[in-house]
Structures are given as C-alpha cells and as structure tokens.
Measured scan of single mutants.
Amino acid sequence: KQVQVGDEKYTFDTPEEARKFAEKVAKEKNLKVTEKNGNFHVE
C-alpha cells in the first residue's frame, strides 16, 4: 500500500501501517487523509 504526501510516495506492507503513517503525517502537517483505490493520500 502506498501513502502519497505531496510528490513523495511511501510504500508499506499492510494497509494498517500505511494508514497509521498517513494519519501521523496529516496530524503533523495539519492536513487530511483521503483513501483512493486502497492507497492513502495526505493533502
């Protein structure tokens, strides 16, 4: 599963790991997490 933050992409083995990372980054940057096709976008 992938997490996209701006132009950066991070790959994780499980959706749970990806979601945790996305939520942590979103909180730090005051952004929101959206899920698209099983991948997460922080925007």
Rank of each mutant, 00 (worst) to 15 (best):
N30A: 07
T34K: 08
N30W: 05
V33T: 03
D13R: 09
F40E: 03
D7S: 12
N39K: 10
P15M: 14
K9D: 05
K29P: 06
G6L: 08
N37V: 03
F40W: 12
Q4W: 15
G38Y: 03
E23V: 07
E43K: 08
F21T: 01
K29V: 06
K20L: 13
T11K: 07
A22E: 00
T14S: 12
N39M: 15
V3Y: 02
N30I: 03
V25K: 06
A18L: 01
Q2I: 15
E16K: 04
V33N: 02
K36D: 09
K29S: 11
F12C: 04
G6I: 06
K9L: 15
F21Y: 08
K29M: 15
E16R: 04
D7T: 12
V33P: 03
E28A: 07
V25Y: 09
K36L: 12
E23P: 00
E16F: 06
Y10V: 04
V25F: 07
E43G: 14
T14P: 00
E23N: 09
N37W: 06
K32I: 14
Y10T: 02
E43I: 13
K20N: 11
E16L: 06
N39G: 09
T14G: 05
P15Y: 15
E16I: 05
K27Q: 12
K36G: 04
K36V: 14
K36W: 11
K9W: 15
A18D: 01
N39T: 14
A22S: 03
T11I: 13
N30T: 04
L31R: 05
V3H: 01
Q2L: 14
F21N: 01
F21R: 00
L31T: 08
K24S: 10
K9A: 09
K24H: 10
K32F: 11
E8Y: 13
A26H: 02
F40R: 02
Q2W: 15
Y10M: 04
K1Y: 15
Y10L: 04
Y10A: 02
Q2Y: 15
E8L: 14
L31N: 05
T14W: 03
V42A: 04
E35Q: 09
F40T: 03
G38R: 00
K24F: 10
H41L: 14
E28M: 07
E17Q: 09
K36H: 12
V5I: 13
L31K: 05
E35F: 14
E23D: 10
Q4I: 15
E8V: 14
P15L: 13
D7A: 11
G38A: 02
Q4Y: 15
K27T: 10
D7G: 11
V3K: 00
G6H: 07
K27V: 09
K1W: 15
K27R: 11
F21E: 01
Q4P: 00
T11R: 08
T11D: 10
F40A: 03
V33I: 11
T11H: 11
F21C: 04
E35P: 02
E23L: 08
K36N: 09
F21L: 01
A22L: 04
V42I: 10
G6P: 01
E23K: 05
D13V: 07
D13T: 09
F40P: 04
A26F: 02
E35V: 15
K32V: 14
K24M: 12
P15G: 09
F21S: 00
E28R: 06
D13Y: 07
K9P: 04
V3F: 02
Q2R: 06
A18Y: 01
N39E: 12
P15N: 10
T14N: 10
D13P: 11
N30D: 10
F12E: 00
A22F: 04
F21W: 08
E28Q: 07
F40L: 12
G38H: 04
E16H: 06
K1L: 13
F21H: 03
E16Q: 08
Y10W: 11
T34A: 06
F12G: 00
D7V: 09
E16D: 11
N39S: 13
K24P: 00
R19G: 03
V3G: 01
A18E: 01
V5W: 10
A26N: 03
F12W: 01
E17L: 08
E8R: 14
E16C: 08
E17S: 05
V3W: 01
N37K: 05
K20Q: 13
E28F: 05
T14D: 12
F21I: 00
N39I: 15
N37A: 06
E35C: 13
A22R: 01
H41W: 14
K29W: 13
E17K: 04
D13A: 12
D7Q: 12
F12M: 01
D13I: 07
K32G: 07
A26W: 03
